[in-house]
């Protein structure tokens, strides 16, 4: 597959007053089996960095390495120049794994108090996140009584107990219903104004909606690191939805209510709209039907 245009491989995106998270030629994996190879990038701008890649590409391994759980077999991960396995660096990041990580045998409030004690947060922080994540009504429930989505919310709540500089969020909205997922995304968006957020998701529309940068992994290597807006897909397809039937779209393939038209790029959209209107079509909506992030999975 041809990668979308943009910088590929090692990358560096910076702003002078940012927080520095850098990977220098990192190889990492499990018990001698390397999953990540030669990963190098540097992040200094507070923003949301979406980590994408097909299953097995090494996303979770990257998160675990950045969190200091896995020791790189080569290279190093640094936060403001300090290795990530040092406590000073660990204290600057939050890690949310793809698993809930909720201790059994506790009520929701007790689980949050457990997290709070680990992070030296206060009981008022626990009360605040119960409201922030909308889980106060669950606070006296034991964890096995919760649905997968409710457990996820409890799990996410812990990253809001204390403020940190870097947030590593491995699939934070998986198993959440759309309303709660949106609320979580909004919280993360708010967070990213001042913080570095690395965020993995299999939902490409979500990734495109909230991410400003993309880190794409393929077979354990960094395939792309760039602004999402710089990505140009291999195809640019728009969907045309009309108020009433028209011959102007005759012969175009259809997907639901949308007639599909492939264009060289988004700059051709105004011309397409003018053309349709000149041919008597009453256009209700034009939308991009192809997400350039999809090409990263091809």
């Amino acid at each position: 597959m041809a990668l979308p245009e943009g910088k590929s491989g090692a990358g560096s995106l910076s702003r002078p007053d940012g927080i520095s998270l850098s990977c220098r030629s990192v190889n990492s994996g499990y018990s001698g089996k390397e999953v990540l190879r030669e990963i190098s990038f540097s992040i200094e701008e507070p923003s949301i960095y979406v980590v994408l890649g097909p299953n097995g590409a090494g996303k979770t391994t990257l998160f675990r390495t950045l969190a200091g759980i896995l020791r790189p077999s080569a290279g190093e991960v640094l936060i403001d120049g300090v290795r990530v396995d040092r406590q000073a660096s660990r204290d600057r990041l939050h890690y949310l794994s793809h698993m809930d990580g909720i201790p059994d045998g506790l009520r929701v409030r007790e689980a949050l108090e457990f997290y709070a004690s680990v992070e030296r947060a206060s009981s008022s922080d626990v009360e605040r996140v119960l409201d922030q994540l909308g889980i106060r009504e669950l606070s006296e429930h034991y964890l096995p009584q919760l649905s997968a989505g409710q457990k996820k919310r409890v799990s996410i709540a812990r990253v809001f107990l204390r403020e940190r500089d870097i947030y590593l969020l491995d699939e934070p909205t998986a198993s959440l219903d759309p309303k709660v997922a949106r609320e979580i995304r909004n919280l993360i968006l708010e967070l990213s104004r001042e913080k570095v957020v690395l965020y993995s998701s299999h939902n490409l529309f979500e990734a495109r909606e909230i991410g400003r940068y993309v880190l794409a992994l393929r077979a354990g290597r960094l395939a792309l690191f760039d602004r999402i807006e710089n990505l140009r897909g291999s195809r640019y397809v728009v969907g045309i939805r009309l108020l009433e039937p028209s011959d102007a779209v005759a012969g175009l393939p259809q997907e639901g209510d949308y007639f599909l038209r492939e264009l060289p790029g988004p700059e051709e959209v105004p011309a397409l709209l003018r053309d349709l209107e000149s041919r008597g079509a009453r256009v209700r909506e034009l939308r991009e039907m192809h997400n350039p992030l999809e090409d990263l999975f091809a």
């Binding site: 660990r90 794994s97 809930d100 990580g101 680990v118 992070e119």
Partner: peptide
């Protein structure tokens, strides 16, 4: 056993 299986250790190791 429970904490290892449920990913609690993963979280605790990340915090030092």
């Amino acid at each position: 056993t429970n904490d290892r299986l449920k990913g609690v250790f993963e979280y605790l190791i990340a915090y030092g």
